[in-house]
């Protein structure tokens, strides 16, 4: 009889420990669920930041406008024509877009579009830098022996 009681007690304690373990497991499961929710949130945030390339671009744009503003105001008025020449040449950096289009094989139409863009921009790059070079080469200082004798 006492044996049986002892066995029941043992079983009870077994069940207790089991239920405790179950509780722990469910906690763990909840923790996992919570953390997996976190993962979802993180991946959503990542997608969001990928989508906000526009905001990144805007940041770059605004800062570049500030740089441009300060640099261009310091350009001496005598060199405003070369300024136009050089800005014209560097705005042809749009050739980068043409190069990617022309260089991506298997899409004939956009390859042709890219090729035309590359050609047009190349006219500008060479023309712009060379004409600026010609202009700047002409700006000379007064020769040392001063005119006022």
């Amino acid at each position: 009889m006492s044996d049986l009681k002892g066995q029941i007690d043992a079983l009870k304690s077994e069940v207790d420990s089991l239920s405790q373990r179950l509780g722990e497991l469910s906690d763990q499961a909840q923790g996992l669920a919570a953390s997996s929710g976190g993962v979802e949130a993180v991946s959503a945030a990542a997608a969001e930041s990928g989508g906000s390339a526009t905001i990144f671009g805007l940041t770059v744009l605004v800062l570049a406008v500030f740089v441009g503003y300060h640099v261009v105001w310091r350009v001496t008025p005598a060199l405003h024509s070369p300024l136009m020449g050089v800005t014209n040449a560097i705005s042809s950096v749009i050739i980068v877009g043409g190069l990617i289009a022309a260089g991506t094989e298997g899409a004939t139409f956009s390859e042709i579009m890219g090729f035309i863009a590359v050609t047009l921009a190349a006219v500008n790059i060479f023309g712009g830098f060379i004409v600026t070079y010609r202009m700047l080469a002409m700006f000379k200082k007064k020769p040392k022996p001063a005119a006022k004798a």
Binding site: V60, A64, Y69, L83, I90, V93
Partner: peptide, 14 residues
């Protein structure tokens, strides 16, 4: 492409 944005902004503000 940030290069195009920066250059465009420089030329645009100039």
């Amino acid at each position: 492409n940030p290069l195009l944005i920066i250059t465009g902004a420089l030329v645009g503000s100039s």
